[in-house]
Design a binder for these strands. Structure first.
Length: 242
DNA sequence: GCGACAG
DNA sequence: ATCTTGTCGC
């Protein structure tokens, strides 16, 4: 809507924290947390990889079939950012690159899981929510550490979880993805409910602490950064999707 | 002023 | 996030 506040590819690098905060407050008004209606057939993991002290960004998304969670395609883009990492403003550093990654995908995934938060955020605008509103996609977040909110430790067994609240409102879940490991923080991003995010996250947990979409995305962008995978959109195999 | 602080 | 080896524990 506002040229100076909603055009990531052209202005995010020049923003001040004050301006970024205003953008988050504007985007929040468009947030939709109603239950997901359509069935999920594919889910993508989104992540970026950086080199120490470098402005180069290796961004990517890996699309997996659902619920079998087999990688079927991936999109990689090499880009750059000057916006620093500031807690609460991760989106401004990573979204411009991820939008390019997303545009490069011919058939969009039904859900996108981010390495970061959805509404577990002071202004309910974590990277997953921000990206979701910008592209009107279905998104959710899975973070490895708490950004904001309060919670009680969930039980030590796989599958146990507790509510994460902020100002008396439930904004996410603290999920024990495996026995005796640090829990992960789950929250809806956009176009799905709080319950949807937890249900989807649980279905994406297999053998490791992090859900498959996020794990695969992290693995692929690192292979991209080390030169083992190349930029562009690529399909894996050919008879998994149809 | 002090503590917290996604990636 | 990234840089790195060994080490403790189920």
């Amino acid at each position: 809507m506002n040229s100076i506040t909603d055009t990531p590819e052209s202005n995010y690098d020049m923003l001040t924290i004050t301006e970024a905060t205003l953008i988050q407050k504007n985007l929040r008004e468009q947030l939709n947390l109603k239950p997901l209606q359509s069935p999920i057939r594919t889910i993508a993991g989104a992540d970026i990889s950086l080199s120490l002290y470098s402005e180069t960004v290796y961004a990517g998304m890996v699309i997996l079939s659902f619920p079998d969670l087999q990688p079927v395609a991936y999109s990689l883009v090499k880009s750059s950012t000057t916006f620093p990492y500031v807690p609460g403003f991760l989106a401004f550093r990573e979204i411009p690159s991820l939008l390019k990654v997303y545009e490069q995908i011919p058939v969009k995934p039904d859900v996108i899981m981010f390495d970061g938060n959805g509404i577990i955020h002071k202004r309910r605008m974590g990277i997953a929510s921000h990206f979701g509103v910008l592209t009107d996609s279905v998104t959710m977040g899975c973070a490895k550490k708490k950004l904001t909110g309060q919670y009680e430790d969930p039980g030590e067994n796989r599958g146990e979880y507790s509510l994460l609240t902020d100002k008396g409102e439930t904004i996410g879940y603290v999920l024990r993805s495996k026995n005796n490991v640090k829990p992960v923080f789950i929250s809806p991003g956009h176009n799905m409910s709080l319950d949807d995010s937890l249900n989807i996250a649980m279905k994406c947990i297999h053998k490791y602490r992090l859900p498959e979409p996020t794990r695969k995305a992290h693995e692929f962008v690192n292979l991209f950064r080390t030169g083992e995978l190349k930029e562009g959109y690529h399909e894996i195999g050919s008879l998994q999707l149809f």
